[in-house]
Amino acid sequence: MSDTTAATPAGAEAAHDAERYAEKDFGFWIYLMTDAVIFALLFATYIVLSRGTAGGPTGSDLFSLPHTFGETMLLLVSSTTFGMASLAARAGNRGGVLAWLAITAVLGLAFVGMEIQEFAGMIAKGAGPDRSGFLSGFFTLVGTHGVHVSVGLISIVVMMGQIATKGLTVPVLSRLMRLALFWHFLDIVWIGIFSVVYLPGVL
């Protein structure tokens, strides 16, 4: 490696940076896989406990498909808008990136708001996580996803701050790319939650 890149000091530095970012991207992929293991186990736990309602409410008593459909739409559209932010970043359009990220954050915030509303409603009905094994599994699985989305929201705000102050520099773009991976990953997990938790619970 060193003999091909050592032609100029600047070239060597750029190659060094490129290697660093490739390592970070690869490491982030592996981190996402470890997170996927966490969700896989939470899904398995939910499935094992889903019949353990202990005489309490079941999924069909609690879940509202229109509400979940709204959440799903918010999250899916937010993934699209993040995609638009990535395209704007590639085009070097700083204002565009900031605008699309802001829209993404608003959609994500609305998703978290709807989830909190759903949780609060269930707890008010006496169907909190301490009611039964089924509800412990439900709140932990869906809540873990919600915490991830919230962390993603904080990261989007930090990201916007970095873009506003530093501009679309190479390190900032590299971070934006990994944040995009994280956001799209949460979308995929939500598809799983929709299919494993809400649909069978209602149907």
Binding site: L49, G52, T53, A54, G133, F134, S136, T140
Partner: peptide
């Protein structure tokens, strides 16, 4: 999960209330 059982009163591994300790 064990900590949630202990501090939040959840039922992952409790004997009753739909928990499953062998999990």
């Amino acid at each position: 999960m064990l900590e949630l059982d202990r501090v939040a009163g959840m039922h992952f591994f409790t004997n009753g209330d739909g928990g499953n300790m062998m999990m």
